[in-house]
């Protein structure tokens, strides 16, 4: 099970990195979302994996899962929504303003320059 969780984190990271390195805003946003999953799961897993022992106190139960990473990840999930929304808005604003959704500043090609000149 540990292997599967670790590999899931790895897969999510790899996919996230690949998409983050794309040239258009939308895939980059998706990539960042994947990275967010990876990071959240990673943080969550730092409490180690526990099955069937939720962090709800019960009489007569002595093993609980680690509640601290859960609390931290919970706010991280909500904050990451806010962050995604802001990034999407920036991307959208840039696209609507320039009709261009490239992530990189396009270096001026010779063609552009001759167009400017004419």
């Amino acid at each position: 099970m540990e292997f599967l969780v670790a590999s899931a984190i790895g897969i999510l990271t790899a996919g996230g990195i690949y998409l983050t390195l794309r040239l258009r805003t939308f895939p980059v946003i998706l990539g960042v979302s994947l990275l967010t999953y990876a990071v959240n799961v990673f943080l969550f897993a730092s409490g180690r994996l526990t099955v069937g022992a939720p962090p709800i106190l019960r009489d007569g139960v002595s093993t609980y899962t680690d509640p601290l990473p859960q609390a931290l990840v919970l706010t991280a999930i909500v904050i990451s929504f806010g962050m995604t929304a802001v990034v999407v808005m920036i991307g959208l604003g840039a696209f609507l303003g320039s009709d261009d959704d490239h992530v990189d500043d396009q270096p001026q090609t010779d063609e552009d320059r001759s167009e400017d000149a004419s």
């Binding site: 670790a6 590999s7 984190i9 990271t13 790899a14």
Partner: peptide, 10 residues
């Protein structure tokens, strides 16, 4: 990057 996070997590 994927291998690195996998290695660390595992």
């Amino acid at each position: 990057g994927g291998l690195a996070t996998f290695g660390l997590s595992f």
